[in-house]
Amino acid sequence: MYMSIKEIVEAANEKQVPIYELAIKQEMEVTKSTFDEVWAKMEKNLETMENAVKRSVEGDGVFSPTGLTGGDAVRIKKYLESGKSLSGDVMMRGVQGAIGTNEVNAAMGVICATPTAGASGTIPGVLYTIKETLQLSREDQIHFLFTSALFGMIVANNACIAGALGGCQAEVGSASAMAAAAAVEAAGGTPEQSAHAFSTALQNLLGLVCDPVAGLVEIPCVKRNAVGTANALVAADLALAGVNNLIDADEVIDAMYRVGRQMPRELRETGLGGVAETPTGIAIRNKILGKE
């Protein structure tokens, strides 16, 4: 099994194959599955992501049982159609996909965890917009997910992907880095450029805390996915432009893990710190959970 990003980059260069091929081959070997089985499973994940984005903009949108989040994907879609967005159509389409997915998640709808449910919008957001920009076929989109997955496994096995252990940097941070690496490959970049994009994306979100209001995956989680998507697109573009990173990706993963260990318990998915402890955050918690 690949246990570092360095090993992935070296293997892709040595064998002259794309990273997604390394991922598919490893998956078949480790889980003793056929190509068709592995492919069908990832295709189901892609369909789940597509359905969530689609559902998020039907009618007035979807709303969580608490009413704290919902309907924003519809607002963003309308704004996007006005053609006046400051960050541009590509960026806002990604943001719409990310927020829409997390609105469905908060509404207890069906999503695909990437790598977690709280971060489930970041990767689909990137894919939803670059599939248009790069005219990706369905096959290309499944490849994108395999490449994301291989990078994600390195983070999960060497650091962590749970907010309760490492804060939001481990969730949206990891998702953003995975998406950045896969976006570079989809755009025709080299394995080294994927690693640079991964490193940049994760560095940019280092230290991000997990501070859900009332312990719910709503505020600030939904919007953090919008930023995860935007950050991934910026990091991918930087790498594709040839802007490199002196701190290599594996070292950033170690740094993320250490930062997570240094985070107090209040900032690791307990709902006891950050925006959860603002007067408004506390008021929302008391209203919903009926405490104090």
Partner: peptide, 16 residues
């Protein structure tokens, strides 16, 4: 497995 990080398909809101 790849599907430990891209997946599972699940009912929200939190994977952990």
């Amino acid at each position: 497995s790849c599907f430990d990080v891209i997946g599972p398909v699940m009912i929200g809101p939190s994977s952990s």
